[in-house]
Nucleic acid binder design. Sequence first.
DNA 1: CCATTTGTCTGACTTAAGTCAGGTAAATGG
DNA 2: CCATTTACCTGACTTAAGTCAGACAAATGG
Lengths: 289, 289
Amino acid sequence: MEREAIDQVRRFNRLVSQRIGALDDDFLARGRPLSEARLLHEIGSGHSNLSELREQLGLDSGYFARLLRSLESQELVETRAAPQDARARTLHLTARGEEEFAAYEGLSDAAADNLLQSLSETQQNRLTTAMAEVERLLRAAKISIALEDPRSADAAFCLGEYYAELDRRFDSGFVPDPDAPEEEYRQTTFLVARLKNNPVGCGMLRPLDHDIGEIKRVWTAASVRGLGVASRIMDRLESAARDQGCKRVRLDTNGTLKEAQAMYRKRGYREIPRYNDNPFAQHWFEKTL
Amino acid sequence: MEREAIDQVRRFNRLVSQRIGALDDDFLARGRPLSEARLLHEIGSGHSNLSELREQLGLDSGYFARLLRSLESQELVETRAAPQDARARTLHLTARGEEEFAAYEGLSDAAADNLLQSLSETQQNRLTTAMAEVERLLRAAKISIALEDPRSADAAFCLGEYYAELDRRFDSGFVPDPDAPEEEYRQTTFLVARLKNNPVGCGMLRPLDHDIGEIKRVWTAASVRGLGVASRIMDRLESAARDQGCKRVRLDTNGTLKEAQAMYRKRGYREIPRYNDNPFAQHWFEKTL
DNA sequence: CCATTTGTCTGACTTAAGTCAGGTAAATGG
DNA sequence: CCATTTACCTGACTTAAGTCAGACAAATGG
């Protein structure tokens, strides 16, 4: 199973990189080095900030400057001083640049369409559906989850976002608890999910009783919802609880958080009577580990 | 819809080529140019014929020789004269080469596993399933279907394979009709499906009555079954029939060809009474276009 | 207001990757 | 058996892609 999955991924990579390689060569077809074509494409797609773009493409600043000079000498791109900072530069396509950009777009579209056209309609639909799934999951795989100090800046950011959302969604609004004492922090397992170093989710576990843990503050940024981040956080928190010797975990929630409740039930949580005096809680759940 | 599908394909390509690029760089991590690493990998995977491999990788013969010299000087690869032809050479890994090959394999496995490990188990299954689907369909998309003279070598090859298979599968064996007269060929629409110029499927349409066409000899090579090639051939034949003014198409089949019958029914064919005297036919179908 | 940092640029270099024009020896077809 | 083809090789070259050290001017922080 394991072996099969790895082989599938590797076969996929091999096949796709051939295919994609072939598509990329179409870029070359317009008689321009690939790096220039790519840069032109990025500028045309609205990246007008030089340093940001260089950072994103991960290129050496000298090399990048030279690529720009080349595009300028072809009169495809103009650079202007940035309004706020005379050292920085902004990038813009000229009219000719726009034309070239459109030509590349047309080529890329044609290549994609060509691929689709060699399939029946049913197959086309299956292909795009499967591609969307692969894309979604590759995106999800880029998100890493790690232990974090609950007093760190990233933890604070996640909690801030979480509280703001609760305040928006609860009928009664929401006011967070005051900060927990040091003692409590020490016993807390706090996880942060990150996409390229940006925090996009969190969740925590704390002891409730000698063999019961409580899961709290599971949050996912809107930008990454539907990627199963909350599930992965829950997985990790539950296995942490198990490692700490808990037999059961509990959690509470508000009636307006329907998706969360659906997830809890799907993960095997059962509704139980009120076990705390949280004024914002309307449902209480428990799962036996 | 169209637009969305194209965008999905392009988004997928972009995302995947980044990911794959990152995987490929891992090859570089062993301090060897990518082309050498790739060549080593191919030789290790059992490609021992120099000219075949060069052909497959599409490399210049001079360049290829140089790559080989480099691998030889690193004592990773040995070349020997081919037994049947003293001009040709065969390629083999040395013991050190095997070690390096195993190291690359390990790295690739680790990269794939690393990707999988950052997903939940459910997500891993979904990812590999979707990848298998994409792979299957990309493979299918490489198959092109084109009009062909029914007397060409490729058509003869397909028909030969088709008849051989019928002979194997029919309880009574199978003996093909003698060649049709020129007149009949002229009215026949013959299609051949090809994968990289190798014929892997065929199918034909001929007029049966003034507004009825007959589909015959739809065959798919075992190596590409399950990729929907037969469906695509049927699509093309039916639309050819429509273009020729047919209102209905008919076909006959033998009882042992269960998959074919299932496909016909799925495509809207209904069983009808015997309409010809084909001694090998046991079922007759018709579809209104 | 001055030392330092930041954002961009130039010049001099390297490496990977590939092309092209021949050259040699074995095989092959008439 | 000889002219031609085939399979591989070498040497001389090119191009894309990138690295690195340092230069310069604007911004910034104390």
